[in-house]
Design a protein around this nucleic acid. Structure first.
Lengths: 224, 224
DNA sequence: GTCTATAAAGGGATAGAC
DNA sequence: GTCTATCCCTTTATAGAC
């Protein structure tokens, strides 16, 4: 993201007006909480400490506000996941997947409202806004495609698993957390660990044990 | 829902006005496609072949329309899942989970728009509507809680898996399909089978002993 | 049971004063 | 850069004719 920052517009130049970002902060929070259509420009303006008309000094329309917010949201989670993966170094793909899951979840719940709003309202914004922001989302999805393809190539993923479906199931399990996760009740790392464990090894007890494998029965309850 | 119609309430009594259901049909389709706030009563009326004012002969408010639609959606998927489970009879819990997944996905994509709209817009409706419909959703969730608890009791699920998280991940993976599934491109049964396979047995090859995980494991993968 | 007409409120967007 | 004032349109909801 660093080399092509200008052409990708991933990070606004530091000269950008502070209020522009401040408005986006408020918009992201409101969109995340209430959805796109339910939030009016008057709401965003009030949350930003100004009047509705003043918004038009910073943005040309409501659609521009939401489009920029959506892009920042995807770029945020993309950046966090990529950073976590690169920091993980050369480890088994299975571990990379758990790392990516943890970074994705962290982005959703610990890095402001952009990512959460981005996920929740993307399907509800006008088609024009979707078209204008689909590119950033595709870039992020392609990163996961490559991540899973690498795992399959190295033999860390079963050959009979559809990688497209695996990715979509993962995204679903993670993004749906927006509908139930409340900070403080459950540990984010624990959630990431459980999801990684289930996705990689399954929720069922170990299947027919291979040749030299001990059967682990610890924690299993006997049939009544 | 007025009466405890057959205690299942999945289907309204035949005496109910036809137009009432017809209006709900149109509302469900529009809500599913565009979200709650983006659909006006004029839109619903036009799709129903009438004018906005006429809707008030059947419903007292937009909120009543959406609340009833939400309840029908949940009751539909609940009824389908329960029917599938009861038809499956006495089989291993692992098989029941795949059966429930298939029924849930079928309800979303093959039984009209109620279920899909119900899932997509629940988080975006006014709090009053959520409060008025949360009971039906809880009933459906409790059914899954019991299903998974039964699997754990019978030893078909690992003891170290958090059943609450497992359920939430499953719901996420299934419900998120609304954001990507297009009829005709992928087979619903195939999707259900893959999700069941991943959730139960994992996407990684059979777990290797801690030490020598670089060993080739050709032929070890069980083909379903 | 559906219509037209309309009320009352709020939506996005613009113009011009300061 | 923010304000007030306003335009024009849409929204939910109501009233009463047919």
């Amino acid at each position: 993201m660093s080399a092509r920052a200008a052409s990708r517009a991933a990070v606004p130049p530091p000269e950008a007006k502070a209020s522009r970002r401040q408005i986006l902060d408020c918009a992201a929070r409101l969109f995340r909480e209430q959805g796109y259509a339910a939030v009016s420009l008057r709401d965003i303006a009030a949350a930003s400490g100004m009047k509705a008309g003043s918004l038009y000094h910073h943005f040309v329309s409501k659609e521009e506000i939401v489009a920029e917010m959506l892009n920042i949201g995807v770029q945020t989670v993309f950046g966090e996941v990529r950073r976590a993966i690169e920091a993980a170094g050369d480890v088994p793909a299975a571990h990379l997947i758990e790392t990516a899951v943890r970074a994705h979840l962290r982005s959703i719940f610990e890095f402001g409202d952009y990512t959460g709003a981005s996920i929740r309202i993307f399907g509800h914004v006008p088609a024009r806004v979707r078209d204008a922001t689909i590119g950033e989302r595709d870039a992020y999805e392609r990163y996961w495609v490559a991540l899973l393809a690498r795992g399959a190539r190295l033999g860390d993923l079963r050959g009979d698993i559809d990688l497209t479906l695996l990715r979509l199931f993962l995204f679903g399990a993670m993004n749906w957390a927006l509908e139930w996760y409340k900070p403080g009740r459950l540990d984010l790392d624990g959630i990431a660990r459980q999801l990684g464990e289930i996705i990689l090894h399954g929720a069922a007890p170990v299947r027919a044990p291979p040749a030299n494998r001990r059967v682990r029965r610890t924690g299993q309850t006997a049939k009544p």
